[in-house]
């Protein structure tokens, strides 16, 4: 008395194997669609823009004559923006993560805050732009300065770094925390000597990925009124500035076809910076992962 009919099983086997092959093919196709489109975009941009990647392109300010147009103002503005955003965002978000993971009492309110921090990461950047416009540009009277933009960007990337830092801190095993506390170390000593050193790779990875998101963001900058064409560079955080994505955004609107190629060159610069930042993040993550 056999419950499984061997004959039927072998009859259906070829059909099962067929479905298996077809599915594999379909998923390969899905992957290829994405890859091919991305590769086309990239190659098209490179072919279009590489001619303009000259020294002059980096040292000239923006200009209405294509031959003179460069990204000096934009790239220096972007550097100012990043250099101001990074410390603000890092202090605020690592501090938040440490408080939530190490100090906060375990209750419903704290759980509610934790859940909503990850939700904040999904809020569109336009909304952060509007927040920055109201809060920093208008109420705090900072105008369209580096500082106002940096504060806005910091708020935008805060949830990303907080979540990454929380995960990194949580991944430090409780056993080494206990070992430190058990020797009479205070909580603060345990944090600075054990928890932060062990979680810093994860935190840095989060910071770099968040900053690489900020560096390409355009919407918040448009909303808080950052100028697109500027013939000087900022000398302090209260000066106004331009930034790479703003420059790209303004050039791409121009009718002159030569500017399409210049836009492509600027995009290549931005992509290169992003690529570099992501490589550093991946390097750090791989080098320091699997430590426990």
């Amino acid at each position: 008395m056999e419950l499984i009919n061997k004959e039927q099983v072998s009859k259906k086997l070829s059909g099962r194997l067929m479905v298996n092959k077809v599915m594999k093919f379909i998923f390969l196709l899905c992957t290829l669609v994405g890859l091919v489109v991305l590769a086309t975009l990239l190659i098209d941009t490179i072919l279009d823009g590489w001619r303009y990647l000259t020294v002059d392109f980096f040292t000239n300010f923006s200009s209405s004559r294509p031959d003179n147009a460069g990204i000096r103002g934009a790239i220096i503005g972007t550097l100012w923006l990043m250099a101001t955003t990074a410390p603000i965002a890092i202090i605020l978000s690592v501090g938040t993560a440490l408080y939530l993971e190490e100090y906060a009492p375990k209750n419903k309110l704290v759980d509610f805050v934790k859940i909503n921090i990850s939700n904040l990461a999904g809020v569109p950047s336009v909304v952060f732009g509007l927040l920055g416009l109201t809060l920093f540009v208008r109420m705090a009277g900072l105008g369209n300065s580096v500082l106002a933009a940096a504060l806005t960007m910091s708020l935008m990337i805060l949830p990303v770094i907080v979540v990454a830092s929380q995960e990194a801190i949580r991944s430090v095993p409780g056993s080494i925390r206990e070992a430190s506390i058990g020797m009479g170390a205070t909580k603060w000593q345990t944090i600075t000597r054990i928890i932060l050193p062990a979680s810093i790779p994860g935190i840095i990875t989060g910071i770099i990925l968040a900053l690489s998101r900020a560096i390409g963001e355009t919407a918040p900058l448009v909303i808080i009124g950052i100028p697109t064409i500027l013939l000087f560079t900022p000398t302090g955080v209260l000066d106004t500035f331009s930034a790479l994505p703003m420059q790209i955004f303004s050039w791409v609107k121009l009718p002159n076809p030569e500017f399409q190629s210049i836009t492509a060159a600027a995009i290549l610069v931005l992509l290169f910076i992003l690529f570099l930042m992501n490589s550093v993040a991946i390097y750090i993550r791989n080098k320091y992962s699997k430590r426990f």
């Binding site: 056993s175 080494i176 070992a179 506390i181 058990g182 009479g184």
Partner: peptide
Amino acid sequence: VENLRTKVGMVFQKPNPFPK
């Protein structure tokens, strides 16, 4: 408690050295 734990040391079930 820090003072108490300085006088009363502890060794745990699973070896838990620091990653140092």
